[in-house]
Amino acid sequence: MKNFWKAVPESLRRLVLVFAVLAGGFVSIRFMLPPSLKDNALHVKTTVAREMVKTVKYAGSDVCADCHDQYQVKKNGYHRNLSCETCHGAAKGHTDDPIEVKPTLPKLREFCVRCHAFNPSRPTGFPQISSAAHNPMKPCVSCHNPHDPKPPQVPQECQACHAEIARTKAVSPHVALECKTCHSVPDEHKVTPRAVKASIPSVREFCAKCHGKDSPVKETPKVDLATHGEKYLCWQCHYPHMPEVK
């Protein structure tokens, strides 16, 4: 062994020593480190634990019903699926200390309008209003109970709910037609719009009353039903609230 070491060139011997010291240093430093700095499983465990004990700020709607009976009102209304904290804000502080900490009570119109203002990107059928036109000075709660929201009285005009259609029709050639011309609207529809629906025309002949070749109505575009549109129903190509043919 000693002979072998002697046989190695002097320069290499010195280098080997230096590298041995460096490697030894690295290994011993690693050895001396606390497990928190090198044990990966432990690191994952502590991170998960740290993540799990972070403060909860939204209590979750389940606990609200323990004390508040508004839940009974809310569960049958349109807002039945809303969490209490959607409107009243994060309330874990309140559930921990119901006397001292009170959740927020939104009173401004802006709060309701954030969901219910008309926005063409919103899904059709979602109740929307034009805030500037819809009783602009009144707070929403003066007419609607937020826990059971519904129109305060049966709406007289279709456009109270079907604002987008009304706006479209207002600038279309069909502007002069009343809704009733094409739809028969049962009174119940105004109270429970989803349960009882208004009728819609179902046959081509309905449109032909004005637009058929032999229609007595003047100044409307006329087509021959026998040759126009083939197998399609009129409204598969023309949107009746905004017929594009002038």
């Binding site: 802006e110 203002a117 008309f118 926005n119 063409p120 990107s121 034009s130 805030s131 706006r167």
Partner: peptide, 8 residues
């Protein structure tokens, strides 16, 4: 910011 009406 109440937006969207411009697109209407």
């Amino acid at each position: 910011i109440e937006s969207g009406l411009e697109a209407a």
